[in-house]
């Protein structure tokens, strides 16, 4: 059974629905990538899963339980984590405090997880006392990912983790995502750098107008001439 299964989800911000039947299913071993043109409902899909907007039709199953319209403070303890695209760090708080906030729901000792995160992102260990607002864009993205991993999620959702980063950092972030996945965390992410992201995706979903257009493994989608022509810029 899939770790997360999004079935025919319809939803939006109150007006006309933005999602008109989205289907997504991935395993804990998968890296799922959602691509598509602007306004296709990619970010909206992640927010709908995470309870940040109203789902009016369809269902979301996570780890064998229905979580449709559950709120984040219920989802995080179940093993779901989300890194928003913008404003994804607490700028006035130190790097370490940011990470601690990711573990707010945990009552056990978090020092082990903290060390794991610092081992994964050594640069954060150096700057652990520095306010996150003073870091560079790439380092902030690492803080945001680290914060989301502090709750020991089964599935990590990322909204355009490479947005606004220099090419060097984009590659570094993608490498981190792959290693997180190797450590046993399922990944579901939205990406603008479609070709680059699909290259390492085990599941790819092409959305358009709030619906699935193509679904397949990453390499399959890149190889598909239709997809390449319409969505990957030739």
């Amino acid at each position: 059974m899939a770790l997360i299964e999004v079935k025919d989800v319809i939803g939006g911000y109150g007006g006309a629905p933005i999602l008109n039947g989205v289907n997504i299913a991935i395993e804990q071993s998968d890296i799922g990538v959602i691509v598509g043109p602007n306004g296709a409902g990619k970010s909206t899909t992640l927010k709908a899963i995470f309870g940040l907007l109203k789902v009016t039709g369809g269902s979301v199953m996570f780890d064998g339980q229905e979580i449709t319209n559950s709120l984040p403070d219920k989802l995080v303890p179940r093993g779901l984590s989300f890194v928003p695209q913008e404003k994804n760090v607490f700028t006035s708080m130190s790097v370490e405090e940011n990470l601690e906030m990711g573990a707010f729901i945990r009552r056990d000792d978090i020092s082990g997880t903290l060390e794991e995160i610092y081992a994964m992102f050594p640069v954060l260990a150096e700057k652990r006392r520095q306010p996150a607002g003073e870091l560079s864009g790439g380092q902030r993205q690492m803080v945001a990912m680290g914060r989301a991993l502090m709750s020991k999620p089964k599935l990590l959702m990322l909204d355009e983790p490479s947005a606004g980063l220099s090419p060097k950092y984009v590659l570094e972030i993608f490498e981190h995502i792959v290693s997180v996945n190797k450590a046993g965390v399922g990944i579901l992410m939205v990406e603008q750098n479609a070709r680059q992201a699909l290259a390492f995706a085990s599941r790819g979903f092409v959305l358009a107008s709030g619906k699935n257009r193509y679904t397949g493994t990453g390499p399959e989608l890149i190889a598909d001439p239709e997809v390449a022509k319409s969505f990957l810029g030739g």
Binding site: P72, V76, F90
Partner: peptide, 24 residues
Amino acid sequence: SRLGKGMRAMSDNPDLAQVSGINT
């Protein structure tokens, strides 16, 4: 304290606090 830091987090960025699972 955990709660005190949670307060500062919510004051800093309420949306992210919610996303982090902080009991707002």
